[in-house]
Design a protein around this nucleic acid. Structure first.
Lengths: 136, 136
DNA sequence: CCCAGTTGTGTAACTGTATAACGTGTGCGA
DNA sequence: TCGCACACGTTATACAGTTACACAACTGGG
């Protein structure tokens, strides 16, 4: 367990604060945006945010969107298949959709296998325009 | 055509220099690493590198690896299927392998279609350990 | 030929993203 | 109680990418 237990999830104080901001946002946030949001809660330096994010990503509660250099709260609490999650990112409205597709995961595993590559983590990000933005 | 024609490929002087560095490297390079390599060829500012990279990526000669914030020369000259290229990145030796898999591309297109998402570009990056590094 | 538009280039300053290198405090087990 | 692991705080710095402005070189049409 954890030393402080500030949260229902066994997160530390800083981790809870960062997690809370990401949940409130409902979409991707940059580390510095999070920092700004948390200045009045005592945050002063980027490292405080990055350390919390590292743990949250590790715990599977947060995903990093590499093509945005941003972070997003996991859609569902116990986000399974965390290693092979795909994201659709609307370049117009910024909305992101999290997808877990087993066929996709399977194909990637097979490709890695073909190259005798020990797969640890995958990044799959689809950029384009979402339905809503296309029709407007 | 191009104004200077410094290269066999119709690239400008700066584009050729950057392309040449990436080809020599045989692996991913950060923009500032390229800049440092080209200081004695007259490069002084990041923008010179980024402008060249933009054109090279647009021309399909170079890929950006989002999870490394780095750039890599395209494996084959006329890299087709440029929109749906996957990369395997060895976290030990840094080597990258470029993969074009039509089944993968098809599956991604289908997923986008299911969500009525107008796909523009995809990023697929597999991180792990390559065969060589696993056995050593 | 000249002019206007486009594209490539050079330079400086700046914002944004991320990490290194310190040191401090706290809980926990040997 | 000693040391270890871990969260935390602070400063500085490295790396990534952009904005703004100016100039040079080619291009196309009148």
């Amino acid at each position: 367990m954890n030393q402080h237990a500030y949260s229902t999830e066994g997160l530390t104080k800083n981790q809870s604060l960062v997690m809370n901001e990401l949940s409130k946002a409902g979409g991707p946030l940059g580390a510095y945006a999070i920092l700004d949001q948390l200045r009045d809660r005592g945050f002063r330096a980027p490292l405080q945010v990055y350390r919390a994010l590292d743990k949250l990503v590790e715990a599977g509660l947060v995903h990093k969107l590499e093509s945005l250099n941003a972070f997003v709260a996991c859609r569902q609490p116990g986000c399974e298949g965390h290693e092979t999650t795909a994201f659709m990112i609307c370049e117009t409205c910024g909305q992101t959709t999290e997808i877990s597709d087993s066929a996709l995961a399977k194909r990637l595993k097979k490709l890695a296998g073909d190259f005798e590559f020990a797969l640890r983590e995958t990044t799959i990000e689809l950029r384009g325009t979402c339905h809503l933005c296309s029709t407007n």
